[in-house]
Every structure is written in structure tokens, then in C-alpha cells.
Design a protein around this nucleic acid. Structure first.
Lengths: 271, 271
DNA sequence: CAAATAGTGTCTCTAAGACAATATCAC
DNA sequence: GTGATATTGTCTTAGAGACACTATTTG
């Protein structure tokens, strides 16, 4: 009978098949259009960070930022590190969306990807290329169900427009997952990941979860409302929104000023 | 400039660090106590499948069934396979709960575990040992928040009683995760996985998601109610339950019989 | 009939949605 | 004052919870 120590000394982890493991991150931010024509509220748009692939496979296509797991970090730390490398900003939050492990999903070999959704708060994000001369850009996101039941994912940045078509997969529990019908210049199976991340983000936003991470510490209720509306692609009446939001916020004694209308009280997140 | 083909020929996946990847599955079933003293409804209990470890590490402790990912399968297929090997029954559903990737979580080396929750419908499950002389048993589950804010996980099978204590981790989004305070004879970090799986199962059950998978195709509304109550550890009034359930079921023209009281109509799941 | 579960009706209270009305600032 | 957003009040309706009551079977 061997002792635990002897057992472990004779155990060689290299004897087993081992895949590569990556984290890919859908980093979201809310951007506001600049066209502030005096006292007019700017439009809010949900945007997603993508990097242009400089190497095969999918060279020239756009992909989620991500990379291989290192020996000394958890998969969450890996996801966090990839976003910091790309944006220089630590995301306010990180959520595992799904694990993608189809043996054929990457032509380089067996690579398992852990897909995360992350939220970056509104700020002067300096877009910078990654180490390997990748180009990183924020794309405006549109994700809607079409009449035929398919979902259209549209990502826009200036002249660049990526259009993917997906179908909703039959899904146990309330976790929606998607299949790619047309990947539309989005690398690998990343269109699936983006769709799943968006779907998660939306259902979280409904219960006021995650939406605070898009905003600075102090915010107006209208700002909070715009975040929820932008993510969920709905619009609600201010009176009703305020009633629901009251449960999640506490007021400060500060106000906005300088806009051409009544100042708004600033609130903080409760808890 | 290389072609894609050349690139891939020169790409050696072995050059990168690779962890081992496993799937561990919390398989739940609802068992009913046999003590049917004529026309008295039997009690429903949520139970969880555990296997006794026959080898180091954690030799003699109880663990979730699970195993290493093979080269030709997805992580979901791996999870499914492990449960079939253990119970001979394909689970009605499978849900990824979280990925556990702490570098120190397994003394054998870098092993990343994908934790799943699965539901096995009520049936004559033949408990059988796995290939490696493991012993598999169903444990009654109790998982409650204590006065001090900690959670107590209690797993019981006859004389065997496993008691773990966990704390809820601060959690972004609505995904609860736990830290182990006392693992109580449960191997590895599996107490965390079980707590997270239960937590997920409960929040799904609230919206009538997953609960049908515990039952046969046709069931009475009372059976459905017991499933929801058992998982969520609550009790609701029949009249109110029926009103809510009506949305998710369709009636058949069959009835139960033989019990010492009014027969119940059998329903099927809607959709 | 008694015991036990099956199933219906309805009262109250709360929360959600719609909408109207008032408040306050910069120009 | 005007144009814009901020903020409050309230009407109506839908749903949740509580509870009382009726229905039906087997021993």
C-alpha cells in the first residue's frame, strides 16, 4: 500500500492528453455620441472590443481579445490580463459565459476556449494595439431577432461592418446558446461567444445586475436608465424606471450642473 | 509571406503550456421515501450522486463523478459520458456551472475542472461502481444558510454524513460562487462545485426551468409542485402553484388511480 | 363515512405600465 | 420665456399570496 506522497511522486500528468486552454473576452463599454447640440442628451451605444488578427488562421478577420492560460493563473486572471493588455484598463466585472470545446473549433489543434463577458466603465479608453501588432477597435453592437427566427449580429466601426447570422439552439435551463449560420468575417466561433455574452448581459441587466459597472461611482438616474435601455434594447418610462431603481441606489447630496435644464441628483449604488 | 497551410504546418501546439481538463458532474435526482402508509403522499428528497475515491489524493473521501476530457469529445460530451458510466442513465439535462482553475486545486498538477449540474429523472437507477472499483451512492442533500451567514451543506446516505461549511463570495452578476470553510470529507474543491450547482438549480427552478427533467413525460401538478418545492426548499399553496404552472403545461386526458383519494389529471410539458 | 388529495373561486395587496403634472436650469 | 431634462403623483390593471370551499376516490 503506497502512501499519498509515493503516489504523487509516481503520478505523471504528462501521461494524459492535454488540450490548450484559452480565455476569450467580450469586453463591453457604453459610448455616447459627441453631437451634444447644447442641452440635448447624447445617444448611448453599446460597443464591443475586437482585435484584427495579424496571423493565420483567420488572418485579417476580427476576433475577441484573448490568449492562452499561463501556468500560475486562474482562467479569470487570464481573462483579466488579456483585457488589461489590450485596453490598459481593468474591467469592472467579468462573467464566464460558456466553454467552447468543439475539437474542430480551431484549425491549430485542440484548443478549449473559456468565453467571458466583461464590462468596462465609461472612460477615456486609449485604444492600443496588442503586442503582436494587432489592431484593436471598439465596434457598435446591434443584436436582434429577425422575422425568420434567426439572430443578426452587426458590429460597426466607421467603414468596417461585420455581419453574422446565428440561430438559437434548443437550450436546457435558461442559458441560451447559438449556432453560427454565417460568421461574417468574425474569426473562429467568436460570433457564438459574442451572441451568448450579449444574451447573458441582457438577462442580467433586467435585474439591475452589471449595469452599474458601466458607470462611474456617482451617476444620475437617467444615465442608469440609458445603460439598461441600451443593453436591453428597450425603452421604459422615466417614472417607472425610477421606482424600480430606487431599490438599488442611494442618493448623494451632489447634483449635476451646466446642462441647459434642471440639474439631476447624483446617486451611488446601494451596498 | 506564408500561406495558411504553411503556417499551420509550422505550428506546434505542444510548444505551449497545457493543463489537464476534466468535467465533474453534480447529478441530481429526486427520490421519494417508500413509507407509503396507504393514501399518504411520500416525502420527496433531493439527492446527489457521489463516488468514493479509491486512490490518492483524497483517498476514501467522496467526490463528484468526473474524468478527463478525451481528444474527440466536447466538454459536455465528457460530462455526459461520465454520468452514463456511473449510472447507466443519460441525464435529461446538463448545465455548465463554473470552471475551477486554481493552480493549486489538485495536488497531482494543473487540472482545470468544468463543473456541471445535471438532472436525472426519477427511475430505477441501478447504482453501480465505476470502472476503477469506485463506490457510487446517492446522498440526500440539505443546503441552508445559517444564522452567521455561512452555508451548511449536508449530504447523507444511511450512516454516512458529510458536512461542509461554505461562505458566499462577493459576486458580480447574479452568479453566486462559494469559498470552502470546512470541506467535511468532500474531496478536492467539490464542495464549492456542489454549492454552486445547487444555487444554480434553485434559481432555475424558480422560473420552472429544469424541474420537468426530474419527472416522467406525464405527471400530476402535485408531483411538479413537490419537485419545485424540494429544490427550492420552500412550500407554496396548491392553488397558487397551479395558476403559475398552467403556463408551462398542457393537460392530457389521462388520470392517476389507485390512491385512496380523488384521481389527479396527468399533464405534459408545454412546447 | 373518514381520510386524504385534487381542484376552483375569490379577496387583498403589491408591483408594473401609462400618463399627467410640476420643477428647474442655461440661454 | 423657451426648450430641454428632472422628478413626483396617481390611475388602472395584472399577478402573487392567502384562504375558503367543493370534488372524488378507497377502505
Amino acid at each position: 500500500m503506497k502512501s499519498e506522497k509515493e503516489f504523487l511522486n509516481n503520478y505523471h500528468i504528462e501521461d494524459y492528453e492535454r488540450p490548450s486552454v484559452t480565455a476569450d473576452v467580450a469586453a463591453f463599454m457604453i459610448r455616447r455620441t459627441e453631437e451634444e447640440s447644447y442641452r440635448k442628451e447624447p445617444e448611448s451605444r453599446l460597443s464591443l472590443l475586437l482585435v484584427k488578427r495579424g496571423e493565420f488562421p483567420f488572418k485579417g478577420c476580427w476576433a475577441l481579445p484573448g490568449g492562452f492560460l499561463r501556468g500560475d493563473e486562474t482562467i479569470e486572471e487570464c481573462a483579466m490580463r488579456e483585457i488589461v493588455e489590450e485596453t490598459n484598463i481593468a474591467p469592472a466585472s467579468l462573467m464566464l459565459v460558456n466553454v467552447f470545446s468543439d475539437p474542430e473549433r480551431d484549425p491549430r489543434g485542440r484548443i478549449i476556449s473559456n468565453a467571458f463577458a466583461s464590462i468596462i466603465s465609461e472612460s477615456s479608453v486609449s485604444e492600443m494595439g496588442g503586442d503582436d501588432a494587432e489592431e484593436a477597435r471598439w465596434f457598435d453592437v446591434s443584436f436582434e431577432r429577425e422575422a425568420d427566427g434567426h439572430y443578426r449580429l452587426e458590429l460597426k466601426n466607421g467603414d468596417i461592418s461585420l455581419n453574422a447570422v446565428l440561430s438559437e439552439r434548443e437550450t436546457k435551463f435558461r442559458r441560451t446558446s447559438f449556432e453560427i449560420i454565417d460568421r461574417g468575417e468574425i474569426a473562429f466561433d467568436h460570433a457564438k461567444m459574442i451572441a451568448a455574452a450579449l444574451s447573458n448581459l441582457r438577462s442580467e441587466a433586467e435585474s439591475f445586475s452589471g449595469i452599474f459597472d458601466f458607470l462611474p461611482e456617482k451617476f444620475t438616474l437617467t444615465q442608469l436608465q440609458r445603460v439598461q435601455e441600451t443593453i436591453m434594447n428597450i425603452s421604459v418610462l422615466p417614472a417607472n424606471f425610477r421606482r424600480k431603481a430606487a431599490e438599488y441606489v442611494v442618493e448623494t447630496d451632489e447634483y449635476t450642473s451646466g446642462a441647459g435644464h434642471r440639474p439631476a441628483k447624483l446617486f451611488k449604488r446601494k451596498d
